[in-house]
Simulated scan of single mutants.
Amino acid sequence: MKLSPLVLLATVALAGCQTGRSPSNVTAPGAPTTTKTQALETGASVLQSRPPVEAISAWLDGFHFYNGDRNGQMEAHHYVTILNEDVMQAVIYDGNTKDAKLMGVEYIISERLFKTLPPEEKKLWHSHQHEVKSGSLVAPGLPQAADHALMEKVVNTYGKTWHTWHTDRDKTLPLGIPALMMGFTADGQLDPALVAERDRRLGVDTKAIRAARSDIVARPVVKGADAWQQGDVIQLQRVQGGGEHAHGKTGFSPAEQRTGQE
């Protein structure tokens, strides 16, 4: 009997797996946590529920680059919640330890839903076919059967990723504005040194993982995704006004509207 990815993941979660540590390379400024704060943290963790956090069921480690700048590459730890068979969401960190810094978010949708998006929206999304088939996207700690089942689910999906803390360059605080990120689509794009260091630290073998996934079926990328390959690059810019989020009259004076603009 072939088990579903969800059943396999639940089985693995119950069994527990050990993986290598991947600490954050960013040190946030600030005073040491006081005893009072520690007590508040402990009390809150005991008394308050965290359903959205507890719904996270998978950890995927891969690599992103800035849309329009393939030299800006970084590792990204995805902690994934499966909302339904067509939609997943992930919070992204720069490590897998308690002090990991929250880098951004990724929304992941099925090929079926991606095909329904308007052309301009599709430009914001990237494909996952190469990430899965190349072995660069890994699920550390999962046995091969569970990894294979999970990647069969991910391979033909599409992701929209925004990074809010650019930890490759901002080593103290999250500076600047969010950046749209993309995924790699062919061999030779991803810096092999990044992969080698990741494999060493987490105790994984990208080449072996690639071979084990050779039978996973990756369908052709749907037109409109990975728009950077056609030179269609989208990034946010600092502008005055609400843009697409403006809802008529703002109620603020011109001077007030300028507050916070750089």
Results as ranks from 00 to 15, higher is better:
Val195Asp: 11
Ala58Lys: 07
Gln18Thr: 14
Gln144Lys: 02
Gly141Lys: 06
Gly72Lys: 15
Val217Trp: 00
Gln257Tyr: 01
Ser134Ala: 13
Asp170Phe: 05
Ser136Arg: 07
Asn67Cys: 03
Thr37Glu: 11
Gln189Thr: 06
Asn25Trp: 09
His148Gln: 08
Lys101Asp: 05
Asp232Gly: 04
Gln240Glu: 11
Thr116Asp: 05
Arg200Trp: 10
Ser134Val: 07
Met103Asp: 14
Ala225Asp: 14
Pro118His: 01
Ala179Gly: 14
Lys249Phe: 04
Asp168Asn: 11
Asp187Phe: 11
Lys123Cys: 05
Ala28Arg: 10
Thr250Asp: 10
Glu256Arg: 11
Leu150Ile: 05
Ala208Lys: 13
Ala44Lys: 05
Gln48Trp: 09
Lys115Ile: 00
Gly260Met: 06
Pro23Leu: 07
Lys223Tyr: 12
Gly135Ala: 05
His247Ser: 04
Gly135Arg: 03
Arg112Phe: 10
Glu85Met: 08
Gln240Cys: 07
Arg50Gln: 07
Gly251Cys: 02
Thr259Gly: 10
Asp61Arg: 04
Lys153Met: 14
Gln261Phe: 15
Ile109Glu: 08
Gly188Tyr: 09
Leu180Phe: 05
His64Ala: 01
Ala58Asn: 12
Asp215Gly: 02
Gly20His: 00
Glu244Ile: 02
His77Met: 06
Gly188Val: 07
Val204Gln: 13
Asp191Asn: 15
Gly231Cys: 12
Ile92Gln: 08
Glu54Phe: 00
His245Pro: 00
Ile209Ala: 04
Gln230Ala: 15
Pro192Val: 04
Tyr93Ile: 02
Ala100Met: 09
Ala58Arg: 07
Ala55Gly: 00
Ser49Ala: 08
Val138Leu: 10
Ala208Cys: 04
Pro32Gln: 08
Arg210Thr: 01
Leu150Glu: 06
Phe184Met: 02
Trp59Asn: 05
Gly95Cys: 05
Glu244Leu: 02
Met182Ala: 14
Asn84Arg: 08
